[in-house]
């Protein structure tokens, strides 16, 4: 190797190392911010989390208050969101990927859906206030809140469904068609099953985004103090109260947390931190479920 080449190699190696260091630095900045945040939350709030905190309604006394109504609220709202956004989103994704003709209209729809994913959530809140709360007359109910968040995450579900369908190799379709399967059979027997991992990952990530949303729910009138739970669908006499919970007023975890951080006294800030830990724990475990599902589904696919 002559001198010239050695010099060039040394320079390239140096560049390599610089970029490597830069990459590590950037990762560390992101990670340490997260770690600091989590650490601060844990230090402030962890000691506050106990059974009482999970099973009490909000109160003017910090040590007596809890997050019962808000976590139940978050749960039932997510139920409505999931039950609406998932089938709608998957169906729309399948249509656009498999049935929709590639034309100008389809392109316009595609561009719009991609853009919708980036619309600020407060805009969805305002739209929901007009359409769900007033026009459809749903009021400030679990149903209105759930539908609002469903519309919010719909683009994410659609996009991830389409991505997942695209990963199925074309040979699989061709093989199925070759055996005389109809289009719907190809989709339901093969495409949907193989892409289930990708779809469920998208769905769970979308849900964990929705669970942290505050702005659109405040806009449609989610509450801050509510010390009763939605009527159980199984309440006696049995079938009569089946859908009552959908019309119940509600509070959600992020709103409760927001309200506590703005209180004057320290002990409410501890409550807020504790609620934050619960919220992060829920989000992280949802993500863990997503990873697990993806892993499990992939393991069974051998093509």
């Amino acid at each position: 190797m002559d001198k010239q080449t050695a010099k060039i190699v040394a320079r390239r190696k140096l560049e390599d190392r610089i970029f490597n260091a830069l990459g590590i630095f950037c990762t560390l900045v992101a990670l340490s911010t997260l770690a600091l945040l989590l650490g601060d939350l844990l230090v402030t709030g962890l000691s506050r989390i106990d059974w009482q905190f999970l099973t009490s309604f909000p109160s003017r006394k910090a040590e007596r208050s809890g997050i019962l109504s808000s976590w139940v609220g978050s749960l039932v709202v997510m139920c409505v969101t999931g039950c609406t956004a998932v089938p709608l989103g998957i169906a729309a994704g399948v249509y656009m990927e498999e049935y929709g003709r590639k034309g100008r209209i389809n392109t316009i729809i595609e561009v719009n859906i991609a853009n919708l994913a980036g619309v600020p959530s407060i805009i969805y809140g305002l739209m929901a206030l007009g359409i769900f709360v007033y026009y459809l007359g749903l009021g400030q109910s679990v149903l209105a809140g759930g539908l609002t968040l469903a519309v919010l995450i719909l683009p994410i579900v659609i996009v991830s469904t389409r991505e997942a369908l695209r990963t199925v190799p074309v040979q699989i379709r061709e093989a199925a068609y070759a055996l005389g399967a109809s289009k719907w059979q190809v989709i339901s027997h093969h495409l949907l099953r193989y892409s289930l991992g990708g779809i469920s990952t998208g769905v769970i990530i979308a849900i964990s985004r929705a669970i942290g949303e505050t702005a659109p729910l405040i806009t449609i009138g989610a509450l801050t103090f509510i010390a009763f739970l939605p009527t159980s669908p199984l309440a006696e006499p049995f079938p009569e109260h089946l859908t009552d919970w959908l019309h119940s007023p509600f509070a959600v975890l992020p709103i409760q947390m927001f309200n506590w951080t703005s209180r004057p006294t320290e002990d409410f800030h501890r409550n807020a931190a504790a609620a934050g830990i619960i919220l992060i724990a829920v989000t992280l475990s949802l993500n863990a479920v997503a990873i697990f599902v993806r892993h499990r589904v992939r393991r069974h696919i051998k093509w």
């Binding site: 409505v80 459809l136 007359g137 749903l138 009021g139 400030q140 109910s141 149903l143 959908l246 019309h247």
Partner: peptide, 28 residues
Amino acid sequence: IAFAAAEGCSSKTNSSTGSHSGGAGAAA
């Protein structure tokens, strides 16, 4: 999930008819 969705849809129609009589945002 599909069943639950159907449930959700049916209650949606219930509510939009029901709440017109009950005024905006009748609670559970």
